[in-house]
Design a protein around this nucleic acid. Structure first.
Lengths: 107, 107
DNA sequence: CCAATGATTAGGCAATTACCTAATTATATC
DNA sequence: GATATAATTAGGTAATTGCCTAATCATTGG
């Protein structure tokens, strides 16, 4: 949990997570989206991986990164439950999402 | 949002938020719960306040702090929506909370 | 006004973070 | 094996963070 919040404290790392929201990307793909050296991005990726927010898989020359879906949402949801006085906003959020069930799909 | 995540990166600050989940406390009340100098706690409190997560109110000699309830949950919920692939865990969370409605109470 | 209490501001220091370049490791291709 | 490409590791530096003590500001009460 500490590692998750440390990881999220960086704008670069949050942006990486956003990139990985919809697609798996190689380290180079990610680095090319930032004006920053590849080693720096590699470091950011390892911080995200140590936090359990992403996993990497080597295929050939490339290392692909993807999100570990459950960890981020679960960690934040758990934290909110613990620290928020009542969790009213989350409940409101819940109502909305609950209303969606049956329209979208669970997975 | 950057300030919120920066604020949450510190264990001390998260613990302060937890203390403020159920009660309003003075700066001294909070400081007494940590093995840390009052000025340091004061600094942590100002970081939380600048992030919009708490507000302070001076009454007599004392400065009382309390959570700004909506901001934390809303910020995190918004972030999860943006960055999580599908939001499945949040949906599951939702189902639970939705099931609670009618039993507990909305406020 | 003067002393006591609560809290913040100021100033300084150690540890950490974030970045860079250079070097290394691993894979693919010839 | 030699070369090119992808990625990480190593090493170094500037900026930031986190903590402390001392000093200051504000309020209460004799």
């Amino acid at each position: 949990m500490q590692r998750v919040f440390e990881a999220l404290a960086s704008p670069v790392r949050r942006k990486i997570l956003a990139y990985l929201a919809h697609a798996e990307l190689s380290a180079g793909d990610i680095a090319s989206r930032f004006e920053m050296s590849k080693p720096s991005i590699s470091q950011h990726l390892s911080i995200l991986e140590n936090a359990g927010l992403v996993v990497s898989e080597k295929r050939g020359q490339f290392v692909f990164y993807r999100q570990v879906e459950d960890n981020l949402a679960n960690t934040l949801a758990g934290f909110v439950q613990e620290v928020c006085p009542v969790g009213r906003p989350l409940r409101r959020e819940s109502a909305t999402l609950a209303g969606d069930r049956g329209k979208g799909g669970e997975g």
